[in-house]
Amino acid sequence: MTPGRASAVPFYVALGLLGGLYVGLVAAMLIADLAYTSPGAVGRALASPEVRAAVWLTLLSCSASAVLSLWVGVPLGYLLARTRFPGKAVVDLLVDVPIVLPPLVVGLSLLILFQTPPGLALQQHLTVTYAVPAVVLAQFTVAAAFAVRTMRVTFEQISPRTEDVAMTLGCSRGRAFWLVTLPEARRGVLAAGTLAWARSLGEFGPILVFAGATRMRTEVLSTTVFLELSVGDLEAALAVSVLMIAVAVAVLVLTRALGLREAA
């Protein structure tokens, strides 16, 4: 072994130990959850019409929230990464607000927003609060912030040179973005979409405050866990938690597989 390699061993061992503490914590949590429940309990949870309805609403709302987050995250991420404009610092700060605010405050702020005259006027035509649109909006408000951050970093890491070359060859700015930069950012787009979807899945506080917990109507899986815990049914709550973990892992594995195939 060369001296360089030998001296690197303690370094990597130290890194592995420190990082392993966190990985071990997450793994231990999952193992504890699995140990506390059983396949039978998960099966009973899935047999419940309320839980099945919550699974469908979770899948639909998280997917809608993720797609909407991308439609906001890509343009805003590009603007923040590549341009200068008045008030950019303020926009940058505002995008972080949903990330740093306590979840309950996000929900309460949305609830108050829809009690203002414009909000009430909108609700004359489309009921938002305590209805399905509130579920999607609560998820989107937080998930979009993560999508914007991811897309900003993605665009910052892509050299603007290829876009400039496309423009010298006659492309407009928009066409260069559409045909050159955005295809280059596809893995970032996939990462932002996955992150937004996962963030939406874990959302609870804003949904509880803004959309309520109405069974078979605004109940997503995180709401189900809360409702089961509220009546002391820890087994059912953990069974639904395990279900959430399974859904999340399936989506993450699927999107990563698609991302790898795309990269290949």
Binding site: A53, W56, L57, L60, S61, S63, A64, V67, L68, W71, V132, P133, V136
Partner: peptide, 11 residues
Amino acid sequence: LGLLVGGLWWR
């Protein structure tokens, strides 16, 4: 997105 919104509206 259209399909998802349709599905949510149906629910």
